[in-house]
Computed example of a mutant assay.
Amino acid sequence: MRKSLVALSVLAASLPAAVNAADYTDGDIHKNDYKWSQFNLMYAFDELPSESSHDYLEMEFGGRSGIFDLYGYVDVFDLTTDPDSDKAGADKIFMKFAPRVSLDALTQTDLSFGPVQELYVATVLEWGGGKTGPGGFAAGVRGPNTQKIGLGSDVNVPWLGKIGLNLYGTYDSNKKDWNGYQISTNWFKPFYTLDNGSFVSYQGYIDYQFGMKEEYSSASNGGAMFNGIYWHSERYALGYGLKAYKDVYGIKDSDALKSTGFAHYISMTYKF
């Protein structure tokens, strides 16, 4: 369930090609196409659960092509293979892909209403990150292998502008069962532009899970909110993020495993 901690500069709201209205009634479903990719060198301080501090490299990408909207990343942990790292012996890689299918483009119909600009069939696919990876898994326990599917949207809200807002049901392939729901939102708001054209943004996301089953989760609900302040130029970005957790991943906060609190992140980005 790890999300990108940098950029969410990936959001369509932040990209010039995505400022066009989502109106495909003329049959041109490629009018808003774009693509991007970047590498993020990151360090997490006291990431929950398990209060893990570690480095990782994130290869992040996304774009739009016709009916398809895509966001994804691959995280590589413990780059120096440090035996003293709390990631030593854990899965080295975690992957997340989040393709959405535009219902507006698929039907060539304007489905917008009120602040809702576009509707999607939204999915998320997650793999890896076992042991001390996402979810604080114990040794020998497999990491996430989940698929989410639901309804997605782009919504225009005051000040923040266009945000992504998605509601999913979660299928856990490790347990061969459905396990609750997740509501997710993300945003990217440039709020100060420097004389050289670079800018500072407020960016982040919220992931909140609910309705999780007792046999799989010690808490029926929980989630996280990331708040980042980033400086962006054409090729580079530097940022700091504060992440707040509450019973994250459905793990009840306890003395044995801390799942409620705060973590800090720093990142350096190169954009291709």
Rank of each mutant, 00 (worst) to 15 (best):
W187K: 04
S233Y: 10
E234H: 14
Q209F: 08
L167H: 13
L167D: 06
F191S: 05
S220Y: 10
T185I: 00
Y236M: 02
S173Q: 00
G239D: 07
K213N: 09
V200Q: 02
Y236K: 10
H232E: 06
Y171S: 02
F226P: 07
T193F: 05
G180L: 09
Q182E: 08
F188D: 06
G169T: 09
D207P: 08
V200P: 09
G169D: 12
L194T: 12
Y181F: 11
Q209Y: 00
S173K: 12
S184W: 08
S198P: 04
G169L: 03
Y205E: 11
R235E: 08
L194S: 09
G204R: 11
S198H: 13
T193H: 04
R235H: 12
K213D: 03
Q203V: 07
G180Y: 05
Y240S: 06
G169A: 14
I229C: 11
K243T: 12
I183V: 14
F199V: 01
R235M: 03
Q203D: 10
E215S: 13
G164Y: 14
Y202G: 08
S173P: 08
F191Y: 04
V200E: 08
G241S: 14
Y240C: 08
S233W: 03
M212V: 11
S198I: 04
W231N: 02
N174L: 02
G222S: 01
A219H: 03
G211L: 06
Y230I: 04
G228H: 13
G241T: 13
T193V: 13
Y245S: 09
G239M: 08
I183R: 02
G222M: 02
M212A: 07
K243A: 13
N174T: 02
